[in-house]
Amino acid sequence: MAISAFAVSDATAAPSMAAKPLSHRLWVTAVWTLIGFFLINLIAMIAAVITSSFASRWLRSWLPEGATTKWYFSAWSEFQLDDVLVVTFQVVFAVTALSGLIGVPAAYAMARREFPGKKLIMLLFLLPMLVPPITYGIPLATVLYRSGLGGTMAGVILANLVPTVPFVILVMIPFIEQIDPKIEAAARVFGASTLRLFTSVLLPLLLPGMLAALLLVLVRTIAMFELTFLVAGPTSQTLVVALYYAVFAAGVRAVQSIDAMAVIYMAVTVVWLIIALRFVNPAQIVTRAKQTKAH
C-alpha cells in the first residue's frame, strides 16, 4: 500500500506542479493548516497533562510556579497504583495469551478450510468488532453478574476476550493465507508428525504475524475502558478504570495527583505502543476490521 502511495505522488505531482493556480495553493495551505491545527491542539492537550503533573502550584498563569515530583508519590499511594498496576498487567497478559491461544487456531482453520457455514461464522467474528462495547457490554455484564463472575478478575478477562479474539482472527487470516500450504505438505511428505509440523514449520512462520496481532491486543486491552468498567469490581480495576473514577471524583484529590496518574497511564500505554509500532503499521490499529469487511 505504501508503494502505491509513492507512485501516485510521482505521477500526479508533476502535472499539477507545472500549472499551479492560486486557488490550488490556497486549498493546499488550508488543508495543511487544518492538519497542523489539529496536531497542535492534540500535542498541547497532552503537554498540559504532563506539565500539570509536575506543577507545584498552577493557577491563573501560563506555566506553573515551580516543578515537583511529589504528585507522583501521592498519586501512587492515594490510588494504590501498585495494586492497580498488578491487576492491569494480570488482566492484560491473560487476555493477550488467551486470545492468542483461541484466536490463532481458529484463524488457521478459517484460512485453510472451506466449509458450509463459514460466512456465518465470519459474521459472528465481525459483529463484536463493529458493535461498540457499551452496547453489548451492558447485557454481557448482566450475564456475568448473574453467573457470579461480575466483579471478579475472571469476569474482566472473559469480557475483554469478546473483542480481542475476533481481532486476532481477523488479523491472522490474511497472514496465514499468504503462507504457501505446499510447505506444510512437504513437511508431511518427509514424515513430520502433527506436533513436529506445528513446532518446526508453522510456529516459526506464524510468529511475526502473531507478534503483531498480540501486541495490538495488548495495547487495546490496556486502553479498553467500557467493558472493564462495566464488569470490574473494586479489586479487579485496571488502570484506565481507576483513572476514570479518579477524574469522576475530581475535587476529592488534587488535580496534579490525577494528572500524575494520567501520565503513568500514558507511559504504560505508549511504551507498549512504541514496541507494537516496530512490528505493525500504525494504520493497522484502525483499518484491520475494515479491510476484512471490504471483500
Binding site: 492537550m45 497532552i46 498540559a48 497533562v49 500505554t269
Partner: peptide, 15 residues
C-alpha cells in the same frame, strides 16, 4: 485512539 477517551477527557479538562 490508543490512549482512549478517558485520558482525552482528563487532558481536555485541563486544556
Amino acid at each position: 485512539i490508543t490512549l482512549g477517551t478517558v485520558l482525552v477527557a482528563e487532558g481536555l479538562l485541563n486544556y
